[in-house]
């Protein structure tokens, strides 16, 4: 293989003109991989999209050698996996990288699989660890059986395999170098938009209506909140922080909320970034459904409630005294500009 063949590509995810976090973590993996493949080649970041993306040169600080940018109005819609895949595949056909790394999200899962189909190469998703043995063969670890077991795969595909890492295993990258990356514009080639699927419109989710499994922020009320009118405070809080409303089994049984909003063993399992548990004691049946939430706030009158074991912030207070104040403050935050708590 010549040096050019050993380029390690990483796919840059960006949103609203800024590079998203997991991308930086990929650079560390890419550098490690390049070293174990023999050190040649460039760590190349690939940016597909429409419109400028800030901070591409600074990718160099994290270890990328160059950045290929395809800026094309056909790439305006992020959900068009087919167009993106054809753009990426075309680019890969022209340059022939050693492999393409991605951080796994809903988007890249689609993109990776489609590009792999176009390139007729392997695609390995959910990778936790990637190693190269002395023969230059890639070995990947990934969870199987719903995360209960792990498998080690051997990738003998001669063509550039596409590897999607689980974002959780990507380390936070701290910028180290001083070298800026070289930014090269690339053309997209002849990819026609018609044929296949056409996105008619994208409906933004109303956070309150959002399915609790997908919501970023969930406000969950339990028996301690009360039924019917008492529960309105939870709706108000959810509106105030753009959260989705959920309940525990008593709330569902009282028909204060519909069944699809139940969290717990008999309901749904949620993994939001933030969950606010109000008036919930935290029985095992409930916590089984929410323990994967990233940040957990619990409000309960009983300081020894089990829910506090799961909480990053516990508040010992009466829901109906605390939440109205909190809602007022939050509503004030979005209504009037000087945010009182945001001054530092």
């Amino acid at each position: 293989m010549d040096a050019g063949m050993k380029d390690i590509w990483l796919y840059v995810q960006h949103r609203d003109g800024a590079v998203e976090e997991p991308t930086y973590g990929l650079t560390a993996e890419a550098r490690r991989l390049r070293a174990s493949l023999g050190g040649g080649g460039l760590v190349t970041a690939v940016v597909l999209g429409n419109g400028p993306v800030a901070g591409l040169e600074e990718m160099g600080f994290h270890g990328a050698d160059r950045v290929l940018v395809v800026d094309d109005e056909r790439l305006a819609e992020r959900c068009r996996g087919d167009v993106f895949a054809r753009a990426l595949a075309g680019l890969a056909e022209r340059h022939g990288p050693a492999c393409v790394l991605m951080a796994q999200t809903a988007e890249t899962l689609d993109l990776g699989a489609r590009s792999a189909a176009l390139l007729e190469t392997a695609f390995i998703s959910r990778v936790m660890d990637l190693q190269v043995d002395e023969d230059g063969v890639l070995h990947a670890h990934r969870p199987v059986a719903n995360g209960y077991l792990f498998e080690r795969l051997r990738c003998t595909d001669p063509k550039a395999p596409i590897i999607a890492f689980l974002p959780a295993v990507l380390a936070e990258s701290v910028p180290e170098g001083e070298t800026r990356a070289e930014v090269l514009a690339e053309s997209m080639g002849a990819v026609s938009l018609d044929g296949g699927a056409r996105v008619l419109r994208v409906e933004e989710a109303d956070p309150g209506e959002l399915d609790i499994e997908e919501a970023d922020i969930v406000v969950c009320g339990g028996r301690g909140v009360g039924r019917d009118a008492d529960f309105d405070i939870i709706h108000r809080l959810a509106r105030a922080i753009d959260g989705s409303v959920a309940g525990t089994r008593p709330i569902i049984d009282w028909q204060t909320l519909p069944y699809e909003r139940q969290i717990g063993q008999t309901g749904k399992t949620v993994m939001p970034r933030l969950i606010v548990n109000c008036g919930i004691s935290g029985a095992n049946e409930y916590t089984a459904g929410m323990e994967k939430a990233q940040v957990n706030i619990a409000v309960n009158t009983d300081p020894r409630a089990r829910i506090f074991r799961f909480a990053d912030l516990g508040v010992v207070a009466d829901i109906h005294r605390l939440l109205p104040h909190l809602c007022e403050r939050l509503e004030a935050l979005r209504g009037h500009e000087p945010p009182a708590a945001g001054k530092d």
């Binding site: 809903a106 996105v199 994208v202 409906e203 933004e204 997908e214 970023d216």
Partner: peptide, 17 residues
């Protein structure tokens, strides 16, 4: 087919194909 498909973060893309 007019398909409603999840487009991440609770957004729904309505795709015609």
């Amino acid at each position: 087919a007019e398909v409603r498909a999840g487009a991440g973060r609770g957004r729904v893309a309505v795709v015609s194909c």
